[in-house]
C-alpha cells in the first residue's frame, strides 16, 4: 500500500519547464544554416541532375581508368620519393624557423609589441596557400622541387609558429620561475623552463604537419614545383587515364603509409 503511494508520487513529478530562450536560439541557428545553404546554391552552380543526365559519359570516362597502367611504375615511385623529399625539407626548415617565431608569438614570454607584429607576420604566411607561394617561387627560382620546398617552408612556418606558441602559452609557469630564481637569463629561462615542457607537443605538431605537407607536395607539381604532381598533371592534360590511375594509386598508398608511420610516432611522444 505504502509503496504504491510512493511510486505514484514519483511519477507525478513535473517535467522541467521548457526553456523558451534555448529552443528559440536553436531554431534561429538552424534557420541560419539552412538559409546559408540556400543562398550558396546558385553561386556554387549546384546541378545534381547533371550527375544523372551525364551518367553515360561518366561511365565511359571511368572506363578509361581501368586497368591502371603500371608500365612506368619505377618512374612514378622515383617521383613520389622526390615529393616526400620536398616535404621533408620544407617541414624541417619550417620547424627550425617556427621555434623562435613560436616563442616570439607567445604572450606569456614576450611583451605585446613583440608578439603582435610577429603574429601578424605569421598570419600572412599562413593565409596564403602553399600553391600560391609555389607559383611565385617557380618564377623566382625556376621550375622544380626547390620552389616546392620554399613554398612549404613559408606556409608551414606560419602554421607551426601558431601551434608552437599555443603550446607555450599553456605551460606551467612555476618551473620557469624556479629557473629564473637561479639567476638565469631570459633565453635560459626558455631553454630550461619552457622547451622541456612543450617538446612532446611540438614534436607531435611537427609530425602532423609533415603528414599534411606530403599531401600538399603531391599537388605542388601542378604549378611546376616538381615531384609526382608534375607527372600527374601532364597525364591528365594528355588524357592518359590509365597512367593517371596508376599514379593516383601510388600516391594513395604512399600517403596512407606515411600517415600511419607518423601517427605511430606521434603516439610514442605524447
Amino acid at each position: 500500500m505504502n509503496s504504491s503511494i510512493s511510486t505514484s508520487a514519483a511519477t507525478a513529478a513535473d517535467l522541467p519547464p521548457r526553456d523558451l530562450k534555448r529552443s528559440g536560439i536553436s531554431f534561429l541557428l538552424w534557420a541560419f544554416i539552412l538559409g546559408l545553404l540556400a543562398w550558396s546554391w546558385e553561386g556554387a552552380d549546384m546541378r545534381p541532375m547533371a550527375l544523372i543526365e551525364n551518367s553515360g559519359n561518366m561511365v565511359d570516362f571511368a572506363d578509361g581508368f581501368f586497368p591502371p597502367d603500371f608500365l612506368m611504375w619505377k618512374y612514378y615511385v622515383s617521383e613520389m620519393w622526390i615529393t616526400i623529399q620536398i616535404a621533408i625539407w620544407g617541414t624541417a626548415l619550417a620547424i627550425v624557423c617556427s621555434i623562435p617565431f613560436g616563442i616570439l608569438c607567445s604572450e606569456n614570454i614576450v611583451p605585446f609589441w613583440v608578439y603582435q607584429p610577429v603574429r601578424r607576420l605569421m598570419d600572412s604566411f599562413r593565409a596564403i596557400n602553399e600553391m600560391v607561394f609555389a607559383m611565385l617561387f617557380v618564377v623566382a627560382v625556376g621550375l622544380g622541387p626547390f620552389a616546392g620546398v620554399l613554398a612549404l617552408w613559408i606556409h608551414t612556418t606560419g602554421v607551426l609558429a601558431k601551434l608552437f606558441s599555443e603550446a607555450v602559452e599553456a605551460i606551467d609557469p612555476e618551473p620557469v620561475e624556479g629557473i629564473r630564481a637561479t639567476g638565469a637569463n631570459g633565453l635560459q629561462e626558455v631553454i630550461f623552463g619552457v622547451i622541456p615542457q612543450v617538446l612532446p607537443l611540438w614534436i607531435s605538431y611537427s609530425l602532423y604537419r609533415f603528414e599534411s605537407n606530403v599531401r600538399s607536395a603531391t599537388v605542388l607539381g601542378i604549378v611546376g614545383a616538381g615531384g609526382i604532381g608534375m607527372v600527374l598533371w601532364e597525364y591528365i592534360r594528355a588524357f592518359y587515364y590509365a597512367e593517371t590511375a596508376a599514379v593516383m594509386i601510388i600516391i594513395i598508398i604512399s600517403v596512407s603509409l606515411l600517415d600511419m608511420i607518423s601517427q605511430r610516432l606521434r603516439k610514442l611522444v605524447t
Partner: peptide
C-alpha cells in the same frame, strides 16, 4: 610546488 622542470 618545488618548481622543478618535471621532464628534465
Amino acid at each position: 610546488q618545488f618548481n622543478l622542470v618535471s621532464r628534465l
